[in-house]
Each structure stands twice: as C-alpha cells, then as structure tokens.
Design a protein around this nucleic acid. Structure first.
Lengths: 203, 203
DNA sequence: AATCTAACACTAACAGTTAGTGTTTTATAA
DNA sequence: TTATAAAACACTAACTGTTAGTGTTAGATT
C-alpha cells in the first residue's frame, strides 16, 4: 500500500465537495426541511448511497467542516507559545471562531441552523465532541497539572462560552463577560489554590 | 370550559403511563435499537398514532420524567430559603439528582442511554432545555443582579457539572471539584467584584 | 495486460414520523 | 335525560432518513 497518486483522492474529494455545495445551495434556496436527501443526490448527480458514503447523515451535510473547528480549538491549546497562559489563548481562538460564524457570509447558514430543531440538536452533539477533544488537549497540557475532571469542566465551559457568544447580540461583549468567569474557575483548580498568598497568574 | 372532573385525565395519564412502562420494559429486555415503535404500540395495545400523541419521539419514551428534573432544578433556585446563597443550594440539588440517576434501580436505564447514540444525543438537547429554564430562574433571582449573560453561563456550568458527575466514577468527588469552580465563576460576576476588599460570600 | 480495490450505482427495504379520516368516550349544556 | 362539543383513540397509507445487498466501473498495482 503505497501513497495514493492523487487522482482517485482528488475525484473523491471533488465528489464530496460537489455534494456538500449542492446540499447547502438547495437548503438555503428552499429551506432545510423542504429538501430531501433524494433531491440533493439527484441534483449532485450521485446515488443516495454514495451521498451517505461521504456523509453520515443529512445534518452532517451542513456541518461539513466541523473538524477544522475542532482542530483550531485543540491547537489553540497545544500550539500556543511556551508559557502562554491557557485561558487567554482559548479566549482569543473562541473569539476568532465566533467572528467566523457571525460573519455576513456565514449568517444565512447559521440562521438556518438556529431555526431547524434537527440541526440545533445535531450541533449540540458536535459541540460535545469538541468539548471532549478540548478536554483531552487541556489534560495533556504541561505545567501545573490539574485533575481530569477539572480539565473536562473547563473544556465544557469554554464550549459554552462559544455557544452563548454565537447566539448573543454582541458576541464580543458576551465573551468579555464569560471568560473572566472561566478564568476564575480555572484559578481555583490551581495546585496553589490553597496557598493563602496572592493568586498566581502564571497559567 | 370548567375544570375537568378527573376521569378523562386519569384515563389519559394511565394510557401514557402504560405506554411508557411498556416501552421501558421492552427496551431493557431486548435493547433500545432492537425494539421498534410498532412493537411498543402493539405490546401496550394502542395505535402507533396514539403513542405519538403522548410522546413526541421514540427517545422521549425513555426521558418520560424530564420535566420533574427541570422543576427540581428551578425550584432549587426559586424555592430556597431567603438569603440562602445560590450556588450551594444548586450544589445540593445537583448532588441529589445525580444520586437519583446513579442509584442501582436507575442504573440499567442509564447504561442503555449511555450506549445508544440516539439517546445520548437526545439527552444533550434535554439538558439544553434544562439549562435555559435554569438560566431564566437564576436571572429572575432577587438580590444583587447579574447580567443575563452571566445567568446563562452559570446555568450551563451547573448542567455541565451534573452531566460530568453523572458520568464520573465518583460523582460526589466530581461535584466537590467542579462546584468550587462554579462558585468562583459566580463570585466574579458579583457587582462588588471590582471591590478590592475581601470577597463577599453573601450570595 | 492482468488484477485488485475503492468508489459508485441501483433496488428494495426498514424504521420513525405524520397526514388524513373516522370512531368512541367523556364532560357539560339544554 | 338527551344533545352537543371536545378530546382521545384507531386505522391506513404514506413520506423521509438510512442501510443492506449486489453489482459495475475507474484507478492503481503488479
């Protein structure tokens, strides 16, 4: 099994992209519920089974790039500058992600998501996956070690911040309010939390 | 339209309960995925459409009492003793709820939920509803007023605590770790948070 | 050139869910 | 009591997302 020489992979990626593009276009034109899987498959000129070999579900057609999202989050932790504090790094990345979602170009898609119960539900499960991945990254972070429970809790809080900010009228203001809360929660898990001296802000 | 004199309501509740009991029994006997809606309806001796007039979905059959859950949470806020601090009251209730879920009698049901993707996903959306209800209760709480954003964030954190504790090997220990984090996050939203003096613990 | 594999296609079906329609039961008004 | 309205229930038939089973084709490997 050597490396694939490309054409096959390119064709596969092209088919996948064509399906995703077609789906999104139809969903935005006629509404998510009004478009059936068979419509998407026909318009993309593939069989229904082919569609499902590229996407696990109808909802997954809309969240095509959620792996990017997850990678950006975990890399904000694992790839940050040495000794850079964790929470501010996450804050920066979450802000960037929220800006990305609330940009004008993405607005119609998110309006569609917010008005479809099926899509909202699906997004919640996607967020859970992201929270788990983030928790793993945080737990593996060097420096003063916190418990796994603390890591998982902070990861959820960060995902909550993203979710609340995305829905807020003023995302930046929401983050400005929530992230100090997260910072305080994080400080309290510090190994030196029992130290009566001034709180350390080193991470 | 006067008050219903009972018989009709009792019959309706009985039908609903019979459906729920039958469903849970079959699910536990044969596995959630192996039991179809038509099986449940037949065994409960009702029509499929009747089943769906009592429950919105197959998953809802399993989360029959989720409104109780929501009420207990919101009442832990709205019905607590005057001047009782918010977070400890929530901690007590969450601990009771987690104990309830992890009790031996409920264990098989939760094992079923944890192993079925469809049920896990559904539970996530139920938790979101609970978080929203809790946020409303917190926002309406008298005393030092916090912003709506802060209320929503704390509500999510509390639901996260419940969820993480329920899955943890030692639920009590998990709550002992997470609730101080929530308390710290809550303190930071206090109107006197900018006060350089000692932190108030009054609510 | 021979061959192996992965992507794709097609049919048919299954499972959850709903629309449409009609029947029975219950509560209340006359 | 009887008449009437409303709610619960039943039945059929369909729609929609999803999958199993089975080939077929195009690309990669030898």
């Amino acid at each position: 099994m050597t490396v694939q020489s490309g054409r096959r992979e390119r064709k596969k990626a092209a088919t996948r992209q064509k399906i995703a593009d077609t789906a999104l276009r139809l969903f935005l034109e006629r509404g998510y519920d009004a478009v059936g899987i068979r419509d998407v498959a026909a318009e993309a000129d593939v069989a229904v089974t082919t569609l499902f070999s590229h996407f696990a579900s109808k909802e997954a057609l809309v969240f095509e790039q959620d792996e990017d999202f997850e990678q950006r989050l975990t890399r904000a932790v694992t790839g940050r500058a040495p000794h850079e504090p964790l929470i501010p790094a996450l804050r920066r990345e979450v802000l960037a992600l929220v800006r990305h979602c609330t940009a004008d170009s993405a607005a119609p898609v998110w309006r569609m998501i917010d008005t479809s119960p099926a899509l909202r539900k699906y997004e919640e499960s996607v967020r859970m996956r992201h929270a788990d991945a983030l928790a793993t990254a945080i737990a593996a972070d060097p420096g003063p070690t916190r418990s796994e429970t603390a890591a998982r809790a902070i990861a959820r809080f960060v995902i909550d911040a993203y979710s609340l900010a995305r829905e807020a009228a003023d995302p930046q203001a929401a983050l400005d309010e929530i992230f100090p809360m997260i910072e305080a929660a994080w400080q309290v898990t510090s190994p030196s939390a029992n130290d009566p001296g001034p709180a350390t802000v080193l991470d």
